[in-house]
Design a protein around this nucleic acid. Sequence first.
DNA 1: CGCGGTCTTGATTACTCTCAATAACTGTGG
DNA 2: CCACAGTTATTGAGAGTAATCAAGACCGCG
Lengths: 243, 243
Amino acid sequence: MIESSRYAAFPTCTLCDLRLLCRPAQHGAEVLPSARILRHRRTLRRGGYVFRMGEPCHSLCAICSGSTRTSVLSADGGAQVTGFQFCGDLLGVGALGTHEHHCDAVALEPTVVCEISFLRLEEIAERVPAVQRALIRLMSDELTHSQDLLLTFLGQKSASARLANYLGTVARRLEQRGLRPEEVCLSMSRSDIGNYLGLAKETVSRLFTRFAHDGLLRSQARRFWVTNTVRLAELTDSQDASV
Amino acid sequence: MIESSRYAAFPTCTLCDLRLLCRPAQHGAEVLPSARILRHRRTLRRGGYVFRMGEPCHSLCAICSGSTRTSVLSADGGAQVTGFQFCGDLLGVGALGTHEHHCDAVALEPTVVCEISFLRLEEIAERVPAVQRALIRLMSDELTHSQDLLLTFLGQKSASARLANYLGTVARRLEQRGLRPEEVCLSMSRSDIGNYLGLAKETVSRLFTRFAHDGLLRSQARRFWVTNTVRLAELTDSQDASV
DNA sequence: CGCGGTCTTGATTACTCTCAATAACTGTGG
DNA sequence: CCACAGTTATTGAGAGTAATCAAGACCGCG
């Protein structure tokens, strides 16, 4: 419990997916200094790169505060947004096997991230079964999350269902992390959302207008507040575009 | 090498993603009887369930021969196809964390599968670092695969690009496993493909007709043979539906 | 206050879905 | 071996949704 003071200034650590691995001293009798695996904390400003595609990756990376956008270069040369990450989310888990980042990660606003040495973690896992299981669990969860995400894109047909689903997912995720849906606000552009969802930015804009008109949310510039989670969820489930 | 005779009748084992874990005797000096982790082999006929959603899962499952389809129940009560698996592919990796299957898996044709006890594997991993790393690598690969898959769905707009991309992916995957593109043939219905890709079955049918007319492939009933991999790949990259 | 970028809104075009009818295939039984 | 029924695949016509093209409004910023 000596460690806990290290994190006093970061209450978000209690929400972090990495917290069980970040403080392995809590696992069993064997005391392991967390300093060995917690490499460093970094502060980024809007537009700053957390990492770039192709860079070597020997760490897991968790977001302490702020938000990020990941993207890859698609075959036609343009960028393809692959996701948005918020407080407590992990970055770079998929790169553990290849030890090389396969996407860019950019801060959407002033953002603080933690890096955890994966090599150290692997060493510790060899000696502490609880850590090994936590690691496997972590990857399994990430896999489940990735497949859930895939699911939302598989059957989706209408644009409104896709956007409603996305906004609802974000609201839910942030709610799980202790924020109220009313407080949900993003920092990403219409283009980013459109790119991510496979929609034209004009379509995204129209949908925001329509959702706001229908009382589902308030939107102002790059921020929005969900005001009717229930109806947003209804839209998500509908296959067609009926509003 | 005493073990090898066990697999003599299954040459496909050399293509299997699980082979490194299935024969842990090869890892280091410690000899571990593979019988402890290889639970059993099962033969299924067309339409047979490999497993059902909600069932307990304590095993990894590899396809020795044949093919399967995974699906979940979507919010509106209908089924959503989440993927197709072929010789050497794994099933149920994402269920390792929760120890419960979160999808149905059905054989598309006469199919043989192997089950590997995950609990045993975990035990062995605690003692043999090489197995632990192989396990992590396996999950990381699965994660990478899942995210690659997600990528193909994210930006995709036109139906032809989606189908071309899918057919190309299947052809490539089977090619990696030792089959020639000319020999690629499937056992899934147009409805399954359409469900998976988010297209109406009529659209899938029309695209098959068009692709065949343009000399990209031959199709006969539920089987098809890719005859022009290059042009199929070109279609994949195109954002619009120009043919 | 003017500038560059993003966002909104409108009109047109094009793609894909839906509905509907016919054709082909699969498996079963005579 | 052939005929039959049920399922699956093909093909066509019409309707609806979202992309594209284009113009103007709003915002942050120097």
